[in-house]
Computed example of a mutant assay.
Amino acid sequence: MGSRSMARVSTRRVVFERVTILLITILFLLPVFWLISTAYKPSNQIFSAPPRLTFEPTFDQFRQAFAIFDVVSLVRSSLVISIGTTVLSLLLGVPAGYALARSKSRFAPGFAYFFLAIRMIPAIAALIPFYLLMRDIGLLGTWWAVIVFNTMLNCAFVTWMMFSYFKALPPDMEEAALTDGCTQMGAFLKVAVPTVRSGMIACALFCMMFSWNDFLHPMFLTTLDAKPISVALLTAYGTKDITWGTLGALAHFSTIPIVLMALFMNRYFVQGATNGVQ
């Protein structure tokens, strides 16, 4: 009887937890659902009272968005900035994290947390001097200005994350590779890096999301031809009203690529986000 009672309590607890998670998820997704459904509603039905749950879908909002914006160019700019930032952040942050993790200095953990502190600096505090620097070297108004700025912030985050992963990795396999005649660089590339692949993927996804959703930096550092879609969303806000239909249509192109990427890499992301930092 006792085991049956405990089984019932356990089942009820599982049901309660899952229902609670489902309700919280629905609560957080309601604004997203409203914004997405707005893109398929006729303009005169967006703020109909009472709200209509059923309506005849239309693609007029998408036609208007493509007529006003060069959507392909906006998405291309977002991809170039996000991928460029991610690649540079990994190329710089992974070796830096490995070097700190294998350093014999007692100050190495302090340096790792120093890199994390860099990521916590308000971006607006560094934006004006960085703007002047990019202007002086001729990169202002290009993708590179945003890529370099985001790399400065994300590389510090990657360094701190990879320091934790490499620190949790026993050096025995690397020492064995060195004994067999492998160089230090070879042991890093052939032994250490493949072992922390899931952590690198988690860092890459974080960098992609940070850069893809970034608004402030590309707003000030790029010209019209190089602006990403995150900045284009602002133009839906007029001086008198907000074109919610156009905003909803652009939101598709702003969210679908990064959501698909997160879903595709979800398994590696969960492993990397939970296994490395102990």
Rank of each mutant, 00 (worst) to 15 (best):
M1S: 12
G2F: 11
S3G: 07
R13A: 08
R13M: 07
F16H: 11
E17G: 02
R18Y: 15
R18L: 15
V19N: 10
I24S: 12
T25E: 05
I26A: 14
L29S: 06
L29K: 06
P31W: 06
S37D: 00
I46D: 04
P50A: 06
R52Q: 13
L53W: 15
F59N: 10
Q61C: 09
Q64K: 13
F66D: 12
D70V: 09
V71T: 03
V72T: 13
V72A: 15
R76T: 15
R76E: 15
I83E: 12
T85F: 07
L91G: 03
V94A: 04
P95T: 02
Y98S: 03
Y98Q: 03
R102M: 01
F107Q: 07
G110M: 11
L116T: 05
R119D: 07
M120W: 13
I121E: 10
I121Y: 13
P122G: 05
I124V: 09
P129D: 03
F130N: 12
L133A: 13
M134C: 12
I137T: 10
V148W: 04
V148E: 02
N154M: 05
C155H: 02
A156K: 06
F157T: 02
M162K: 04
K167L: 08
A168M: 10
L169R: 00
L169T: 14
T179H: 10
D180N: 09
T183W: 13
T183E: 10
A187N: 03
K190I: 13
V191W: 06
V193W: 03
P194N: 10
P194A: 09
P194I: 08
V196L: 00
V196G: 01
S198R: 05
A202L: 01
L205H: 02
L205P: 00
M209Q: 10
S211Y: 01
W212I: 00
N213T: 11
N213P: 07
D214N: 11
L216D: 04
P218R: 06
P218F: 02
F220L: 11
T222R: 08
T222P: 07
L224G: 10
D225M: 13
P228F: 04
L234N: 13
G238Q: 08
I242L: 14
T243A: 13
L247M: 15
A249V: 03
A249L: 04
L250Y: 11
L250H: 10
A251N: 09
A251I: 06
A251T: 11
S254P: 04
I256K: 00
M265W: 08
N266Q: 15
R267E: 15
Y268N: 09
V270Y: 00
G272W: 01
T274C: 14
N275C: 12
G276S: 04
